[in-house]
Design a protein around this nucleic acid. Structure first.
Length: 575
RNA sequence: CGGGGCGUGGCGCAGCCUGGUAGCGCACCUGCUUUGGGAGCAGGGGGUCCCGAGUUCAAAUCUCGGCGCCCCGACCA
């Protein structure tokens, strides 16, 4: 491909509204252009990277016997009513009405459509398992789209769905898909983690997320370097925390703590270890008001609380609710003497505490020397803790590590969550009808490409892992006037292209500086510069974007050397 | 939805407070020079100042209403 005939326009000024590197660089490099909030045009250069990822995905899924099809983006409301999600999915579901006033939605995911398909075609256990996927445009009306392709409203997703006669069949395919995902992200040349995750709105029992590690990632990942345990922070569980020194207990007594609402303030004021202060948080849920006690120095995990209560509607209560529940303004809630209609739960982190401090449920007052059992008792103990770095691993006790990642894939065991309500059944060996076990497997195409940039860039631009680079090699003659330069450039370009190398010829009438800056910005993994000085000695200049080290190679060796470098840049090769 | 900010040639911005000629840099076009890290000089083209209403002799500027966009928090591939 010749630059002059490819639709590729880089931009010098950094766009004002792009904050993160991948967003900025994709716009500057001419890969995407915004059309509306969270909605982008994929320009030819960007589309090439996305297509390369799609090719990798297709190849690896084929090995897992996952079969491609394509479902409609626009889906009738009836199917969503059957599954119950028409009402439950909320505002993220873009609902549209046709000319006959029939309701449709633009698909954010395709469980309903695929289940409808399979229930009509599959009737016997002999036809199972079935594993189908598509790569398709989804729309989720996100509350806040941001970061370019990282969180768009319209986005490309690979979504796969499997159907099984029983749990063991599901387990087998789930593991096949897990391995396929491992292969896909490895083949992309990305550093990634596979972690246990909360299954969220899609539902189901078991799920794993694939995270591309990046400092700017939106997800927080907990891992154990010793035993390999890894989980999304939303789900991560720790072992028992080290308890603060036990304390002699006297009778619970009230102390005045005027204006001291935060745990830090109270601990300092009363000269106690913050770990011996019990923090009581009041939540509004669709199961009524719930108070939860947790150790003063720790954060509560609302996802865990929601799971415990079997709801997603968990919100910190407002002042009025807190006053009604505790009889005190915000900042003085405690386990002793809560209103009778308030459910009281406690995190394991406070279970071992003795003679602790807590809010008095009374303005400007706290209680000291409070004891579980004697003074207060939760309705239930549970794990509501947000795990932090250095907490002990629940499996092996080693200190956990916390890092950030970008969620690029998520695989779920759905069980019969959709097959049951939608009547997706089959006849088993005994001829009786059973709901199919289902799995579903998502992978964000645009997000993965954005994550690759997030993980691989410098101040000059993108540093593509070879498999996702829009072009592998740039051939750049430094002048458009010197016929000798052009002749060599054309020849090398033609030879590389003939060998099947993805090569772009920078045939623009631009000055050298412009060509270098653009080459760095777009991040061609291999660059072949043809300049007057070196060509006088029969040489051209070869360099890798990754290290920018320049090598002079003779014109006759150039193509071979490029092939060697490309080989070295393949993931898995030592560099 | 809560909190903050922005909307002025293609892009990045100034002008607005204190109403009166729409301006700068980049990009673009023409010419000359230049040609190994975003060139120089000269000339040139291009703007419903987000939309609507109001105030005023006069509105980019003041007032009201709308729309769009971005950033920080709860959602997710």
């Amino acid at each position: 491909m010749r630059w002059s005939r490819f639709y590729l326009n880089t931009v010098r000024e950094v766009p004002r509204d792009a904050e993160v590197a991948s967003h900025r660089l994709m716009i500057r490099a001419g890969m995407i252009r915004k059309v509306a909030a969270g909605i982008y045009t994929y320009l030819p250069l960007g589309w090439r990277s996305l297509s390369k990822l799609e090719t990798i995905v297709r190849g690896e899924l084929a090995k897992a016997d996952c079969i491609e099809l394509s479902m409609p983006a626009v889906q009738p409301s009836e199917l969503w009513m059957e599954s119950g999600r028409w009402d439950r999915y909320g505002n993220e579901l873009l609902r549209i009405t046709d000319r006959h006033d029939r309701e449709f939605c633009f698909g954010p995911t395709h469980e309903e459509v695929i289940t409808d398909l399979v229930r009509h075609d599959i009737t016997s256990y002999r036809q199972l398992p079935v594993n189908l996927y598509q790569i398709q445009t989804k729309f989720r009306d996100e509350i806040r789209p941001r970061f370019g392709l990282m969180r768009g409203r319209e986005f490309l997703m690979k979504d796969a769905y499997s159907f099984h006669a029983d749990g063991s069949g599901l387990e087998e395919t789930y593991q096949d898909m897990r391995r396929a995902y491992d292969r896909i992200f490895t083949a992309c040349g990305l550093d990634f983690l596979r972690v246990e995750a909360d299954s969220g709105a899609i539902g189901g029992s078991v799920s794993h997320e694939f995270m591309v590690t990046a400092k700017t990632g939106e997800s927080v990942v907990v891992q154990c370097p010793k035993c390999g345990y890894g989980a999304n922070q939303e789900r991560a569980e720790a072992g028992d925390l080290e308890a603060p020194e036990p304390q002699e207990s006297t009778l619970a007594s009230e102390v005045a703590t005027p204006g001291k609402t935060g745990v830090e303030e109270v601990a300092e004021f009363l000269k106690v270890d913050p770990r011996r202060v019990v923090k009581t948080l009041v939540y509004d849920t669709d199961h009524g008001v719930v108070a939860v006690a947790i150790r003063g120095d720790r954060e509560l995990n609302e996802v865990k609380l929601g799971n415990f209560l079997n709801t997603t509607a968990v919100e910190l209560a407002g002042e009025a609710t807190i006053l009604a529940a505790t009889g005190a303004p915000v900042g003085f809630a405690g386990p002793v003497g809560l209103a009778p209609d308030v459910r009281f739960l406690a995190d394991e982190s406070v279970r071992a505490l003795t003679a602790f401090v807590c809010g008095a449920n009374k303005g400007d007052a706290h209680l000291t020397d409070v004891e579980w059992g004697r003074d207060a008792a939760p309705e239930a103990w549970g794990d509501f803790l947000t795990v932090d770095a250095d907490d002990p691993c629940g499996r092996c006790g080693s200190p956990l590590q916390v890092s950030r990642g970008i969620e690029v894939g998520h695989i779920f065991k759905l069980g019969t969550k959709y097959s049951e309500p939608m009547g997706c059944t089959f006849a088993d060996e005994n001829g009786s009808d059973r709901a199919m076990e289902m799995g579903c497997y998502g992978l964000g195409i645009g997000r993965t490409v954005a994550a690759a940039i997030e993980q691989n860039h410098d101040e000059n631009g993108i540093i593509w892992p070879l498999p996702l680079a829009p072009f592998e090699v740039l051939v750049a003659p430094l002048s458009d006037r010197d016929p000798a330069l052009l002749e060599v450039a054309e020849k090398l370009y033609a030879e590389l292209a003939a060998q099947g190398v993805d090569v772009l010829l920078d045939d623009r009438a631009e000055r050298p500086g412009v060509k270098f800056k653009d080459a760095d910005l777009i991040g061609f993994p291999v660059r072949l510069v043809i300049g007057g000085k070196s060509l006088a000695e029969g040489k051209v200049e070869l360099s890798l974007r990754r290290d920018r080290e320049k090598m002079a190679v003779s014109v006759t060796d150039a193509v071979e050397k490029v092939a060697e470098l490309l080989q070295r840049e393949q993931p898995g090769e030592t560099q």
